[in-house]
Design a protein around this nucleic acid. Structure first.
Length: 597
RNA sequence: GCUGAUGUAGCACAGUCGGUAGUGCGUCACAUUGGUAAUGUGGAGGUCACGGGUUCGAUUCCCGUCAUCAGCUCCA
């Protein structure tokens, strides 16, 4: 694939940049098409993305319908057919400003003003359309073979909610029609994996307008999974000498004023309730409660580390547009803990948390994640606690520990909590943007605000350091992730229905009932399908909706031989075995929390 | 919250250029008694999200509200 650079040289495109260039050029072609249909359109940014491209455009008062997007796409096809060359040129700053001004490109004009003094300002022209751009681009529009406009949405100029909202038009582009078709298939598969869809199919949770938005309710099957996750993580934590507590979901406003959360987050909390001249809020997080538990009695350095954990109900008034099933609601349960440590214990405790995270991921079969060291933005004086020395100590400390542990991570500025830096472990859901699953945060700030103390070996009072950590993050969100990862085919220990018992006909119903009873009595989540339907039909439903790990079919043969037929969900193999043998096998599998059937 | 789209039976969806609605699955009844991804027949089931307006008449047109979806911003 030939490409043309801003100085006019033409060359072969490096393999790894081909798609990027193609997609970026596609954005220009889309802009040209939009300009033809909407001459008043003014363009902001139009980059390539992971799968395609977008362009943010100011369309004045025009609103686009799906038909309009289709028209734009048709116009793009025409431009491709016209086979226009991409022609670059470079202008001195004053002429560049004049050109953009003359053509009414006020966003590009503003952009030039943001560029450094010595910037080379280049343009690309294809046909009648000129765009300010550093390139490189494809040499002719006909190089674009497979693309599609996928959606429109709003996006703020320079990503700032204070600025005007522009129309963002997204598209995808590939080398070939086959790759485009492959992409569309992937999108369909991702939609089928969406936890909201599977949750409904399997009867895991529900929402209702009358309850209120962002407030999902866990149904018996969903709560079964939820409880298993809770038991699992508490067991892991107990083994690491955590102590679990239970604290109220409400706290006084004064509590959050003390912690600083009120100042930073009051707009994202449910508004205060005033009773008997005192103000309370539904709690958005649990740090202050746990701080007060620490402060409940004096501590010696010999007591530390103290690890206080809680599966804690929290409420946040999340912007309505951000709510998403059980992945992000206005109520959720954090797998939270606060570790109160001395400065020389930081390293070991961070290591222990990090090891716990990856131990859990191993158990759960989670492999697709990335680690981020989230740092403050030193320029942002509003968001972050003012104490440069504290930040320096916390950030370098955390970075050192992670490096020593051999964790691969990237650093992101401006992602820290207001009280300290964090290690975030991020994953991608089936649909939508990446989110944080697990976190470990280093905090020198809140212990001081709450005046927490311990007595050191010299009998002097010292302030402990706090590690905030969440392994499953929120149980709700973690469950959403597991639904999407497993497509609802949970490992046996998590499956809401572990065994579906299917009699071949009603004649064997008594035998099937006794088999089911024995399984239930043994602590297995078994369910009898006693409906008057054929075997094939019941098998189909058990696979499609329950996704039960095991199907037990009993007919005349089994009654006669006094055994059962067990079909494995993952291999589709059926074997005959004694009921006791099966119970022993599945109980062991559940106890081991094994991932494979 | 913002921009856009959507809201019809438990679920998935048709449809009505304004005359109070259909299909499939599920559900219920009856027949069938079956061997690992759909047995047959029949019945019931809807204030067409909610509230206003226009109209002889609104599920359909207009306005507002609520919810859902995509993206943006945010995520202690």
């Amino acid at each position: 694939m030939k490409i043309i650079y801003k100085d006019g040289t033409v060359g072969e495109c490096p393999e790894e940049e081909k798609l990027h260039v193609l997609r970026h050029s596609c954005a220009h072609i889309m802009a040209q098409a939009i300009k033809r249909l909407y001459p008043e359109a003014d363009f902001a940014y139009g980059p390539a993305t992971e799968r395609g491209f977008y362009y943010d455009v100011d369309l004045g008062d025009n609103k686009l319908s799906d038909d309009d997007l289709h028209r734009i796409e048709e116009e793009m096809k025409k431009i491709v057919k016209e086979n226009l060359p991409f022609k670059p040129f470079i202008l001195p700053r004053d002429e560049a400003v004049a050109l953009m001004h003359e053509r009414g490109n006020k966003y590009k004009e503003e952009h030039i003003g943001d560029l450094p003094e010595d910037a080379v300002i280049s343009f690309y022209q294809q046909g009648e359309y000129i765009d300010m751009c550093v390139g490189p681009h494809i040499t002719y529009t006909s190089a674009l073979k497979a693309f599609k406009i996928t959606q429109q949405s709003g996006a703020y100029w320079k990503n700032d909610a204070k600025n005007k909202m522009l129309t963002r038009i997204n598209g995808v582009a590939f080398f070939s029609k086959e790759e485009l078709a492959e992409y569309e298939k992937e999108v369909e598969e991702a939609k089928a994996r969406d936890h909201r869809k599977i949750g409904k199919e399997m009867g895991l949770f529900m929402t209702d307008d009358l309850i209120g938005k962002g407030l999902p309710m866990f149904l018996p099957k969903g709560y079964t999974i939820w409880q298993e996750l809770e038991n699992y993580i508490k067991e892991k934590e107990r083994a690491l000498d955590y102590q679990h507590v239970m604290t109220p979901c409400v706290g006084s406003v004064a509590l959050y004023q003390t912690s600083g959360h009120w100042e930073h987050y009051k707009d994202n909390m449910f508004p205060a309730m005033v009773v008997e001249d005192e103000s309370f809020v539904l709690r958005p997080m649990n740090c202050p409660h746990h701080m007060m538990i620490y402060a409940n009695k004096p501590h010696s350095y010999r007591d530390l580390p103290i690890r206080i954990g809680e599966i804690a109900h929290d409420f946040r008034f999340e912007a309505s547009g951000t709510l998403k099933g059980i992945e992000r609601g206005r109520h959720f349960c954090q797998n939270d803990a606060h570790l109160f440590v001395t400065p020389d214990q930081i390293k070991d405790e961070v290591a222990s948390v990090v090891n716990l995270i990856f131990d859990v991921y191993k158990d759960m079969g989670i492999t697709n994640y990335r680690c981020v060291l989230s740092l403050r933005d030193p320029e942002d004086k509003v968001k972050y606690h003012h104490d440069d020395a504290m930040w320096e100590k916390a950030e370098t400390g955390l970075r050192e520990v992670l490096t020593e542990l051999g964790i691969e991570f990237t650093e992101e500025i401006g992602e820290a909590a207001f009280y300290g830096p964090k290690l975030d472990v991020n994953v991608k859901p089936a649909v939508g943007a990446e989110y944080t699953l697990s976190t470990c945060q280093l905090d020198f700030c809140l212990p001081a605000k709450f005046n927490l103390k311990y007595t050191d070996a010299d009998g002097k009072e010292q302030t402990p350091v706090v590690l905030h950590r969440a392994i499953l993050g929120s149980i709700d969100r973690f469950m959403a992730y597991m639904i999407e990862e497993t497509k609802g085919k949970f490992p046996t220990w998590l499956a809401p229905v572990q065994v579906k018992v299917i009699p071949v006909s009603e004649k064997m119903l008594d035998y099937a009932t006794s088999v089911n009873k024995a399984l239930v009595a043994a602590g297995v989540r078994a369910q009898l399908d006693d409906r008057n339907e054929k075997v094939g039909y019941k098998i189909r439903e058990a696979r499609q909706f329950d996704r039960a790990p095991y199907l037990v079919v009993v007919g005349a043969k089994e009654v006669e031989e006094g055994n059962i037929s067990v079909r494995n969900r993952d291999t589709d193999e059926t074997v005959a075995m004694g009921l006791d043998e099966f119970i022993a096998k599945i109980k062991a599998e559940i106890a081991n929390r094994s991932r494979t059937l």
